[in-house]
């Protein structure tokens, strides 16, 4: 990270607030600093407490200033129209996840009879199945995660958003390791997963930001060393081991559509090459911004498959469909 010039700190103090220089080193620029400070103030204003608000603002700014992600400081992150609770030990939902989930829902609602079965593996906060049940009325969702903290938070998130979800919405949360034998609903319409996909070398490099390395759970980011044996069995890299297993599950339960988040183009290509058989006729790679932003569609060839590449930014998800 480049060093911030001292004048920037003076500017922050003069233009924004005396509290601004405290969070400037983690926000890195004046615009973000002023936004985050405003959001902290708004949060304090909208959550009444007997503690004086000035003290609470100072406490939150202090917490943020040591690098804690804002989502952990405030305890929430907006995701589509929902508000997802965030807690230390569970991965924070990202904008790109929101973008491809919204886009996925537009594909489904335009071309399907009711009811829709959603299965989400490595669910974390439960953001993906929650948003899909919100957007697709009459959907039933099953969410699975290996971490008990995640599952309890996902359940809390379901209750937290209960009033905005359609009344008939039905969600099941199960704590289970996806490498162990599972009992899963058969032929779900959508199988989504945002599994750990960062290689341990990338995790240690500066490409992974400090706030992620220090504050977010490594379990949700990097496939653990205990999976090395599995990686050898599947004959793939350690960071791709979850995709190998999820594609296996997708074949077993005959999922109609599969959406897997990936780190970038190279990993997306490796995942596409992993797909066996001809069940999935349509294969696409979605980039960071697929929803809302100006739509760019390209076509490329990977192996024998023709791939539709949609969106702007880095490659973010691989989409398979039988339909």
């Amino acid at each position: 990270m480049p060093r911030l010039p001292p004048t920037l700190f003076w500017q922050a103090r003069r233009l924004i607030s005396p509290l601004a220089p405290l969070i400037l080193p983690v926000c890195r620029d004046l615009e973000t600093t002023s936004n985050e400070l405003r959001w902290i103030r708004d949060h304090v204003k909208s959550h009444p407490s007997p503690i004086p608000s000035k003290l609470r603002i100072w406490q939150l700014v202090d917490k943020r200033s040591n690098g804690t992600p804002l989502q952990y400081v405030l305890g929430t992150q907006p995701f589509g129209s929902l508000e997802i609770l965030c807690r230390k030990g569970v991965l924070i939902p990202r904008h790109c996840t929101e973008s491809y989930t919204l886009y996925l829902s537009t594909l489904i609602s335009s071309s399907s009879p009711s009811p829709i079965k959603v299965l989400d593996l490595c669910t974390g906060t439960g953001c993906i199945p929650l948003l899909l049940t919100f957007l697709l009325p009459s959907a039933t969702a099953t969410a699975i995660d290996t971490s008990p903290i995640s599952i309890s938070l996902a359940k809390q998130n379901f209750l937290h958003n209960f009033s905005s979800l359609p009344p008939s919405s039905n969600m099941t949360f199960t704590q289970n390791d996806i490498f162990s034998p599972l009992s899963l609903p058969s032929s779900p319409d959508i199988l989504t997963a945002n599994p750990p996909y960062i290689s341990s070398s990338l995790f240690q490099s500066t490409q992974t930001t400090r706030s992620v390395r220090h504050f977010e759970p490594k379990l949700a980011l990097v496939p653990g060393d205990h999976l090395k044996q599995k990686a050898i069995e599947y004959n793939c890299r350690l960071e791709d081991v979850f995709y190998a297993r999820i594609l296996e599950i997708a074949r077993e339960i005959a999922a109609k559509r599969v959406l897997l988040e990936v780190a970038g183009w190279e990993q997306a290509v490796r995942v596409v090459e992993m797909i066996e058989g001809k069940e999935y006729g349509t294969v696409g790679i979605w980039k960071d911004e697929v929803y809302g932003a100006t739509h760019i569609v390209e076509e490329t060839q990977i192996g024998r498959r023709k791939i539709k590449v949609i969106g702007e930014g880095e490659a973010r998800a691989v989409y398979l469909s039988r339909i």
Binding site: W39, Q71, T208, A220, A263, E289, G292, G313, E314, R316
Partner: peptide
Amino acid sequence: IEESFLKGSGPGGQKINKTNS
């Protein structure tokens, strides 16, 4: 309308956590 997400786009994914919306 031409829509774009400033700074929110670019390299992202699990390895980066941005608050810019």
